[in-house]
Amino acid sequence: MTPDKTKALSADPTHAMEKDIAFKVEDLNVYYGEKQALKKIKVDIPTHSVTAIIGPSGCGKSTFLRCLNRMNELLPNFRIEGEIIFDGQNIYDKNVDVIDVRQRIGMVFQKPNPFPKSIYENVAYGLRIQGIKKRDLLDNIVEMSLKKAAIWDEVKDRLAHPALALSGGQQQRLCIARALAVEPEVLLLDEPTSAIDPIATGRIEELLRELVKSYTIVMVTHNMQQAARVSGSTAYFLLGELIEFDETSKIFTNPGDRRTEDYITGRFG
């Protein structure tokens, strides 16, 4: 699966220059009914790096994140203009299969949301819906995914136990394992640590630093220290606009926009 995609990417000369860019977002406008949630967003999100999206509540961070794997479509009255180029193709093109998009671009949510099933079945779900039934293959991928999400040692003896019996932090790492099981190229995280305690948060940040070696990660966060700790680049959103996008070190030490500085120094937000 994965080798094919990398080949397709590098074999296509027109996109050779973009191979370090995961998402090329062009003039993105998003509306919920009459209300415009995102205005003229233009940004290139790099591969194999953690991109943090920060900004005050209601600024459109989550909306933007959910545009990247077409999760917004589930909402009524949602409308989008512009392009999001991923792997040389606009993911909103008519001939693009949304299921393919979501398999290649995984997502982890704010509140841990494991299925009310066993730990094993949670991780295997994404494979089962693809029609994979072979037990040893499933076993293999489940183990690999749980290992990648750094939760294998804690659950290996109770894979058949209900996932909802795990602690919040464990549930969130399980959700990451579940997302990794379908072998995505990108991981989108929507405030993944806002519902769990500081120690569990530390473990997840550590995990993200590990995962970024093989995945592109885009993360919405309310916690600016977290953005500073784990991300390579940071995007600052305000009232549906992208105010500034740059390397995290620059955003936090020498922001180019007054509004970014105001937010980061805690003058509002």
């Binding site: 999760m71 299921i99 979501r102 398999q103 949510f109 994404g126 819906i129």
Partner: peptide, 14 residues
Amino acid sequence: PSSIREASYALGAS
């Protein structure tokens, strides 16, 4: 809860 539906859709379920 809608979080369960979202989790499923996000894994590529129809």
